[in-house]
Amino acid sequence: MTTSAKIALVTGGSRGLGHNTALALARKGIDVILTYRKEKEQADAVVADLESQGRKAAAMQLDAGDTASFDAFLARLSDVLKQTWNRDTFDYLINNAGFGINAPFASTTEEQFDSLMNVHFKGVYFLTQKCLPLLADNGGIVNLSTGLTRFSFEGSSAYAAMKGAIEVLTKYMAKELGPRGIRVNVVAPGAIATDFGGGRLKATPALQAHIGSVTALGRPGQPDDIGGVVAALCTDELGWVNAQRIEASGGMML
């Protein structure tokens, strides 16, 4: 293995869309550092899978909603880069970590609101900020949003509002990081059958049928529908795509 491979940092890479993204990046010849909050065994299994494909990989613990922990995380990240890759920088940041809360607007609590904000907006804002010294020039950032910023389903007001903020932030990141050649885009998945939000879609055939009925391609999404989109944004082929919202929903709610 040469040290010339690009390196991506994927937050929340131990499961779901983050896991799928890590695998898709590996298929494009990109090495991966993934973060996990509690699922160390799952994260280690993903690392082993990536290594079996000939990539270098590492897993690091991170609570993406705990901004007070970010300085220590960045110090550890710097050590991992030097020890594993003999590098001081990485090339792509994938802000994927997240969770869902389904609660009506009228009864969403301040605690629920803050927990969503800390992970989906404040955490993304300040983790990205703190990563800037380690993010290589001419690299890229991909933020994860949701189709729920374009269409609405009851119970997602706080979550969708945080993702709407991320979509605006993406444009500002692209504008201010452009002089360094860093591209910043946002991928907005539609309804995806994973364990996200308690796995409600994955476990509910009636909900799957409803989603299929309002989607042009006739079915809910799967993780394999998303990871490749994120990984593609980390390639030279899409090197002129910047500050864009790319919805990957199969044509939901057209």
Score class of each variant (00 low, 15 high):
1 M>Q: 13
4 S>T: 14
5 A>P: 00
6 K>E: 05
6 K>T: 02
8 A>G: 07
8 A>P: 02
9 L>W: 02
14 S>Q: 05
15 R>S: 12
16 G>K: 05
19 H>Q: 13
20 N>T: 10
21 T>C: 12
21 T>L: 08
22 A>M: 03
24 A>Q: 12
27 R>L: 11
27 R>K: 15
31 D>E: 07
39 E>C: 07
40 K>I: 14
40 K>R: 15
41 E>P: 10
41 E>D: 15
43 A>R: 00
44 D>W: 03
45 A>Y: 02
45 A>P: 02
46 V>R: 01
47 V>S: 03
47 V>Y: 00
48 A>H: 11
49 D>I: 07
58 A>M: 01
59 A>S: 15
64 A>E: 11
65 G>H: 07
67 T>L: 06
68 A>E: 15
78 S>K: 11
84 T>W: 00
84 T>G: 07
87 R>Y: 11
88 D>G: 11
89 T>V: 14
89 T>R: 13
91 D>C: 09
91 D>F: 06
91 D>K: 03
92 Y>W: 14
97 A>C: 06
98 G>F: 07
98 G>A: 09
98 G>K: 08
100 G>F: 05
101 I>N: 08
104 P>M: 15
108 T>A: 12
109 T>S: 15
111 E>H: 10
114 D>C: 03
114 D>A: 13
117 M>D: 11
118 N>G: 00
121 F>V: 03
121 F>K: 02
122 K>T: 12
124 V>T: 14
127 L>H: 07
129 Q>M: 11
130 K>W: 00
136 A>C: 07
136 A>T: 05
140 G>N: 04
140 G>A: 12
141 I>L: 03
142 V>L: 02
144 L>E: 05
144 L>N: 03
151 F>H: 11
151 F>L: 01
152 S>G: 10
153 F>Q: 14
154 E>R: 12
154 E>H: 09
155 G>Y: 04
158 A>D: 10
160 A>Q: 05
161 A>Q: 12
165 A>E: 07
165 A>T: 06
167 E>F: 03
168 V>E: 10
171 K>V: 13
171 K>D: 04
171 K>Q: 15
172 Y>L: 11
176 E>A: 08
183 R>A: 09
185 N>D: 10
188 A>E: 10
191 A>G: 08
193 A>K: 07
196 F>E: 02
200 R>G: 04
200 R>F: 10
200 R>N: 08
202 K>E: 09
206 A>F: 01
207 L>W: 13
207 L>H: 10
210 H>S: 07
212 G>E: 11
212 G>I: 03
212 G>P: 10
217 L>I: 15
217 L>S: 05
218 G>K: 05
223 P>Q: 07
225 D>E: 09
236 D>R: 11
239 G>D: 08
241 V>G: 04
247 E>F: 06
248 A>Y: 09
249 S>C: 13
250 G>R: 04
250 G>S: 09
252 M>S: 08
